[in-house]
Design a protein around this nucleic acid. Sequence first.
DNA 1: TTGAAAGCGCTAACAC
DNA 2: GTGTTAGCGCTTTCAA
Lengths: 349, 349
Amino acid sequence: MNEDVTRRRSARQKHAAVRIEDVARLAGVSAITISRTINKPDTVSEATRKIVWEAIEETGYIPNQLAGGLASRRTRTVGVIIPTVVNSIFADKVQGMTDVLHAAGYQLLLANSGYSPEAETELVAAFLSQRPSGLVLTGVTHSDRTRRLLQNSDIPIVETWSMDDGPLDMLVGFSNRDASHAMVAYLAGCGYRRIAFVSAPVLNNDRAAERLRGYLEAVDEFGLARDQGLIREAFFTLDNGSKAFADLVAADPSIDAAFFANDVLAAGALFEAERRGIRVPDDIAIAGFDDIDLAGAVTPALTTVRIPRYEIGAEAARLLLERIAGRAPDRPVVDLGFEIVARGSTRTR
Amino acid sequence: MNEDVTRRRSARQKHAAVRIEDVARLAGVSAITISRTINKPDTVSEATRKIVWEAIEETGYIPNQLAGGLASRRTRTVGVIIPTVVNSIFADKVQGMTDVLHAAGYQLLLANSGYSPEAETELVAAFLSQRPSGLVLTGVTHSDRTRRLLQNSDIPIVETWSMDDGPLDMLVGFSNRDASHAMVAYLAGCGYRRIAFVSAPVLNNDRAAERLRGYLEAVDEFGLARDQGLIREAFFTLDNGSKAFADLVAADPSIDAAFFANDVLAAGALFEAERRGIRVPDDIAIAGFDDIDLAGAVTPALTTVRIPRYEIGAEAARLLLERIAGRAPDRPVVDLGFEIVARGSTRTR
DNA sequence: TTGAAAGCGCTAACAC
DNA sequence: GTGTTAGCGCTTTCAA
């Protein structure tokens, strides 16, 4: 039997893949029975199931999901758009989604927008063409066209990484503003009064904008030094962190703490301080955001904000599955919070 | 007219998306003309094209690629399997592929195998179900079932990150063995004689295995200390690098250099050395592999092996596109080489 | 528990 | 340059 199949396959055009009909013929049943054995096994008798699986193995049948998806209007894929694959913080989120979705038999389609709303729009359109079961976006800033595409599409959407009041559909994240505010509050509590802030580029990035806002609000609230000269903007690289730090201390030697919108910048600053013989935290404190591995590995370890990266992905996936299953999730907006992690790069008081 | 469409859409079931027929009716042409306007614009007159695009805009039509792919047997998607999304070295490769493929109108399907051949097999099967135009794998170690699936599938495959003689189809990378050998040769040239090696887990990881092999061969070739006690294995985290380093120097104080299979481990070692007051490179030299940003940012900066991560992805994508276009690439195996980057974590002599 | 017929939305092949 | 016809390979619906 095995030889029969082999002979038949090699005689055929290479491109002519095994179809469900081929398996059905070999198993001596109809095509729909093959389909049921794969997709709804409990509706097929055990004896038939066994025969069918043997035929599937023997033919090396790989179901064509284009055909299946077209006929059933269910693709079991989820599109995910992140700003960049280069930053490992999103990797954890992706892992969280992968773990949950894979267990449910779903596939991830991943793409990165490069922090560009236009690129995001194109990606959303490209994803929608594939008729995914759901979509996961990063942040809540989208172009009008993106919003329109999504609103017309009628598929479940989860926005992540923010905590905004008017989500498109569902939202999982934390308040970047509160987190940033909390860090400044912590630093103020440690006695720091002149706290610089190095922001990520805020253009088209609500997470960065909210972190800046949280800083500014806390500065006012605690009566800290408020000065445009205390604020810088830098894209997250170690080198940019070093430069921003060098720039800050050169411009204003009286700064007693520097809070960076992410740990990569903060680590770059720490390395620069070491190079210049500036003692941390004795001469100046440094704080970061994200709690990446590096934050805990450097000396002194970085005081930072820990965010539930993996859990954001996992929860987003769970919400999506709920919605796909037709159950409206009880809470379409999930705030997973954050945590201030106090370490050696800031003194306690 | 706009209102007509809007009314029609809202009157319909939400799930009934706009189909090509709807656009055709509005534009007063046949469905195939819509298809041609989108996919082969130069076969349609300019006047028709204009009318069609207006109708597309007005209806908010998003082509159904499941149907299109099924009918045309072309999906314009490429499946990519990497070991992990957590390591940013693969992020650069993905970026390289994205840049090239996106420009050609292709979409990436990304998945990670977690360094497990069984997971890889499942992912390959899942990808093949989607009938991608091509597949990009990491490494050359695959399960028998994976090889069988791929050989039966008849789609273009690129393996990456290695330089092996018998690729499944095409191969883009560098020789991990030569690179590792070259680093040991460099260290020997600097006068180091007792060089420890911290490998990545070699099980199911040909890249790691080849790096270990290169080390061993160079040790013999240059008459360096050969001792099982000089070799450790650790999964890449900063913490594991610290531990391996601590372990190594505790077990054998006469080690004069430590070569790590990746920069993350090496950086962890450097941090540990600093904590213990061990001077690098005066007391012991440290070398890494990959040349990630961190390697150049720490003090002393890490001597390491630079590999063309982005270019591997870009070249893999180019080969794939060539093959998809029906042109057999002149060189189905591309060795992109590597480079020893000498920095302060090793002394010159 | 299994099957037959119809059709998912699009494009290839062939007209005109 | 544009249209008609006939599937692509699967699953839904309805029937047995």
